[in-house]
Structure formats: structure tokens, C-alpha cells
């Protein structure tokens, strides 16, 4: 046998097979399935886990377990934790730019812009944690000797379908506002462009965000969105990413959500918006409940 030539060939790269992010850990899909992710030009990018209904249920359980703690943290603390995520995003900037450029087929400069906008948006929302109650709450001057105060509270566990096209800026635009008030999230990443969501989960895993606050599922949007829309321990649905997804409509998911009267945030239009403009207090308040507390006054 002749020895193979080992002259200076290019190094064989380590190809990635990514996993899910549930409860602060990175499990494989219980189904064992993976799918191939390609870049905008159709070249192999990575293998991603193809999550199942069971994974979705596990993610809901992790999100439910984490919810009281996240909501119970002080608003100042949540703000700091979220701000620290922005610091980490900045540190991983090059990887995000590469992911976004390859996945969305953007020029390096436009990918840079998208990543910058995403990080800036994260900072904007991080600053809201300790202001929402002041802006959206009320002292109510009732006609009687009573103290009466209304405050926004988190809705609970939110299932969010991340935008299909805008894989980082769109993702941050739907995820960050849900977290501000203390909701926890099961996020279904863009089916064809999941890599920024996966990289974000690696950021979150090394941040101070408690395990289970954000859970990231990769795989088929239609396959995962439906069990989440039906799940009776999910309080709300963010459907921004359903437009442009295959084999599922936001209307059918909203109908499923009616079973336990989930709060539903409908997509703004029938195609993906320009995420540059999608930054609002309303995005935060869509996943809150107003609680009003009364107490008599007396000497």
C-alpha cells in the first residue's frame, strides 16, 4: 500500500452539529433527528437539531419552572442581566456578522448594520425593565377612601415564533421585549436560518440569564408551533415568525390558542416587516397583565 500524500492540504474544518437549548442545557432532540442548514447560496452551513413535540413540551416545562424566579427578580436586576447580554453580544459580534451575512445573503456591511441594530435594540429593551411599571401603571383616584394601584405584570410563559428572514434583528425584536417584564420564553428559531438563534443561546448560556428563561428550539416551524399553540401551560403566543413559514398560518395557530385563551400577538402584516422600525413599548405591553390592587384607607 502506498501511503497517502500528506502534503500541505488545507486543514479539515470541524463541522458543527448544534443542539437545542432547554432549561440552560444543550440537549439533543429526544427524537434524535437533525437537519442540514445551508447558507443563502445553498452551501452546507451546519447540522441543527430537529426538535419534536416532546422537546417543545420539555421547553415549556423549563420555562414554567424558571418563570417565578425571573419575574420575582427586581426590575433593576433584570435590567442588569439583560444589559450584560448586550455586552456579550458585542463580544461575539464577528460570529453574528458571519452568521447573518451567510444566512441572509447580506454584504458584510449590511450584516454589520443588522448586528449593530440588534445589539442596540437589546440595550434599549434592557433599559425598560424598571420603567414599564411607571409608564404603564397607574394610581387610580377612586371615589372613596381607598388606595388603588394598577401595575403591569408578566403574562407568564410565552411561545414565540422567531421571524423566518431576519435571523438576528428580527429575533431580538421579538425576544427582548417579552423578557423585559419577567416572562419566560420558548422560542422557535427561523427554520432555514437558525444559526444566529443558536449562537444567541450560547451567549445566554454564559450570561447571567437563569436557565429556562429562554429556551430555543430549532426545526420545523409548523411542527413546533402547533403543539405550543395548543399547550395549556403556555400563556401567550408571539406569531411574528409565522408569516413566511411553510405549512402553517397564524390564523390556525390563533384558533388553537383560544382553547385556554392565550394572549396572541398577531403578525403586523402578511409579510415580514422591516425590523429596523419595530421597536416599541407596545411590544412589551403585549405580554403583560394589568393587576389592580385595592386597600381601604382609615385611621
Amino acid at each position: 500500500m502506498t501511503p497517502t500524500s500528506t502534503t500541505t492540504a488545507a486543514r479539515v474544518d470541524v463541522r458543527k452539529t448544534y443542539k437545542l437549548f432547554i432549561g440552560g442545557k444543550f440537549p439533543r432532540s429526544e427524537s434524535g433527528r437533525t437537519y442540514e442548514v445551508t447558507d443563502a447560496k445553498g452551501r452546507f452551513a451546519a447540522n441543527a437539531a430537529q426538535a419534536s413535540r416532546k422537546d417543545a413540551r420539555d421547553a415549556v416545562r423549563a420555562a414554567r419552572a424558571a418563570q417565578p424566579g425571573w419575574a420575582g427578580a427586581t426590575a433593576y436586576n433584570r435590567g442588569q442581566v439583560l444589559y450584560r447580554v448586550a455586552e456579550l453580544l458585542e463580544g461575539r459580534r464577528a460570529q453574528f456578522v458571519a452568521d447573518v451575512a451567510a444566512g441572509e445573503g447580506l454584504s458584510a456591511r449590511r450584516a454589520e448594520d443588522a448586528v449593530s441594530a440588534a445589539i442596540d435594540r437589546w440595550v434599549w429593551y434592557a433599559g425598560w425593565t424598571d420603567k414599564v411599571a411607571q409608564v404603564a401603571g397607574n394610581a387610580n383616584p377612586v371615589a372613596g377612601p381607598y388606595f388603588n394601584l394598577s401595575v403591569p405584570e408578566p403574562t407568564g410563559v410565552v411561545a414565540a415564533i422567531a421571524p423566518q428572514k431576519s435571523s438576528l434583528l428580527g429575533l431580538v425584536s421579538v425576544l427582548a421585549p417579552i423578557l423585559v417584564t419577567g416572562n419566560t420564553v420558548v422560542l422557535v428559531a427561523s427554520e432555514d436560518r437558525p444559526l444566529p438563534a443558536i449562537t444567541l443561546s450560547e451567549v445566554l448560556a454564559t450570561s447571567d440569564v437563569p436557565g429556562g428563561v429562554v429556551n430555543v428550539l430549532t426545526g420545523g416551524t409548523a411542527e413546533l408551533a402547533s403543539p405550543l399553540a395548543r399547550h395549556l401551560d403556555v400563556n401567550a403566543l408571539e406569531l411574528a415568525g409565522v408569516v413566511g413559514a411553510a405549512d402553517v398560518t397564524w390564523g390556525e395557530l390563533e384558533a388553537d390558542a383560544a382553547e385556554n385563551l392565550k394572549r396572541v400577538r398577531r403578525p403586523a402584516g402578511e409579510s415580514e416587516p422591516n425590523w429596523k422600525d419595530e421597536q416599541s413599548l407596545e411590544s412589551i405591553l403585549a405580554f403583560t397583565e394589568t393587576k389592580t390592587v385595592w386597600h381601604p384607607k382609615g385611621m
Binding site: 397607574n138 387610580n140 383616584p141 377612586v142 371615589a143 372613596g144 381607598y146 388603588n148 394598577s150 403574562t155 400563556n235 385556554n260 385563551l261 394572549r263 397583565e289 394589568t290 393587576k291 389592580t292 390592587v293 385595592w294 386597600h295 381601604p296
Partner: peptide, 25 residues
């Protein structure tokens, strides 16, 4: 959505009323 402490069933036009979960939105 409404918590009455040391009182109950108070209503006022200035005071928001409505539910969590399956009590509506």
C-alpha cells in the same frame, strides 16, 4: 386582575378591571 385587600367587590370608573388566564383579556 383585581386584588381586594381588606375589602371586596369594589368598582370604580377610574379603576381597570379584567382578568388573567381564562378570565379573558
Amino acid at each position: 386582575g383585581v386584588v381586594w385587600a381588606n375589602t371586596f367587590n369594589r368598582f370604580d370608573p377610574t379603576s381597570p378591571f379584567g382578568g388573567y388566564k381564562e378570565s379573558g383579556y
